[in-house]
Design a binder for these strands. Structure first.
Lengths: 258, 258
DNA sequence: GGCGACGATATGTCTAATCATAATCCCGAT
DNA sequence: ATCGGGATTATGATTAGACATATCGTCGCC
């Protein structure tokens, strides 16, 4: 192995818009991801690196701290800083917004409302909401997302009219309820569940599939201020749709870990 | 609406192990997620907040900067700091390590090797690897992950013997290749793809399903130092398996966004 | 009334310094 | 030889201060 290439050389080659610690983060990350610094590699001490890069210890600390939060480095007092071992074979997959998803593939997005009812909550609503909504009135919707007028996603949704002000007055004829809710609901903390299911006869007809064809089912429950706002089930043709992730060692210490 | 509850009150109630900026981050985040500070809400200026919390501006800056990176706040010079609008209906789903997954459900994990061959690369290998491996020799494996001796996941894998030193000598009879690779490969940057597929007759038999039943397919390609290390296809019974995520507005500015 | 320049303002970044904390090393006593 | 305790060391946290930068308002000129 011998000594890996040295960092800290380029004080001149500063890209515009990049701060010093950004530059250092990218530099060190490149050392790690391309293998020049293997897992377990012991980095020089903070003060040393700071001197090599020509920055103060605070700036170096910020850069190393960020890399540690991202999971590339492990830092322990006295022991110093080491390149992290690859963690479990875990990863993180992004679920995109439907409109963005369709548009990114270069097609036109359209929403077609199939059904809309205001009715009291039922037991079966717990499938979308986790908890039963009680006997309060809920808004129930079904619709189809189209990409270039081709079926893309079948949506079944419950909305809490108490939490989503103005929902009762919306007819959702063309506007997808998800898009409308984004602008109307004060905040959302959501939980998602992804499964594979076989298309029922009705679903197959709507999505223009064979009965029993595998579909990707995403159930999302959205809350705000303790109360549920909406629960939605999205059904994508499995052959067409896919979730993609590109990731290094860690997801980067996101917000809701507690 | 009126004035939301004030922050900065508790200088006394410091939990153990929590730093000051951690405390501030949690405090402000709670204001946002439970709706006391709605989207678009204008926060007091940094110096003001710092004074209220009894910390320096640097510490306050660290806390606000972290919340901004997490996506809860939007900061612009002169305009000040605002609570972010809920972004697209996007989310992030975690893919866990298979052993962890099984063990977390309280069952015993076991791997059963079905086939193992060293052979030249083929065109069809591109399905797992993205690119064709050329005519170099590859290691091809198939096996079944069991939870309490019940089929849990069907695995098909290609390994690059040049990148994974010692792979040729491993027989993988009991040790799952994923677990072995974690300890043998210097680093891995992986890309994942999740789809829904119908079980073929062979797959259904192995997983003890009906033919055509919906399954969750995860394809992972792992690289190290520019070369591919392994490509794997994991097939889970769709009814049994699910991916779950709990998230706020953003995934938190992870490592590989470029 | 419209347009441009300039100043005020809030955040962004960086520095040097200090204290805290945890882990390790090392040396001496038993 | 081993165990314990202090010294050492590297990171962690915090602060006050300084300068940079983007942007919003406003004032004055045309």
């Amino acid at each position: 192995m011998s000594a890996p290439a040295q960092p800290g050389s380029p004080p001149a080659g500063l890209r515009k818009g990049a701060t010093r610690h950004d530059h250092i983060v990218e530099d060190i990350r490149s050392f790690i991801v391309d293998g020049r610094w293997p897992p377990g590699f012991q980095l020089p001490v903070e003060t040393d690196l700071a001197e090599r890069y020509g920055v103060s210890r605070m700036t170096m600390n910020k850069a190393l701290g960020q890399l540690a939060r991202e999971g590339f480095l492990v830092r322990r007092k006295k022991s110093g800083t080491q390149v992290a071992q690859p963690r479990a074979e875990s990863a993180v997959v992004a679920i995109a917004d439907i409109r963005d998803e369709v548009r990114r593939s270069g097609r036109a997005h359209r929403f077609h409302l199939l059904a809309r009812r205001a009715r009291p909550g039922r037991e079966e609503d717990a499938l979308l909401l986790g908890d039963a909504p009680g006997s309060r009135e809920v808004l129930w919707l079904q619709g189809l997302h189209l990409a270039d007028d081709h079926p893309f996603c079948f949506e079944t949704r419950l909305i809490n009219p108490d939490a989503a002000e103005g929902a009762k007055e919306q007819d959702f004829a063309d506007l997808a309820p998800g898009a409308w809710l984004l602008g109307a609901v004060p905040w959302s903390v959501a939980s998602h569940r992804v499964r594979a299911v076989n298309a029922t006869a009705a679903e197959a007809k709507l999505l223009e599939l064979e009965v029993g064809e595998a579909c990707l089912e995403i159930v999302r429950r959205t809350q705000a201020a303790g109360d549920w706002v909406t629960g939605v089930r999205l059904l994508y043709p499995g052959s067409e749709h896919q979730l993609v992730a590109n990731f290094g060692p860690d997801a980067g210490g996101g917000p809701s870990r507690g």
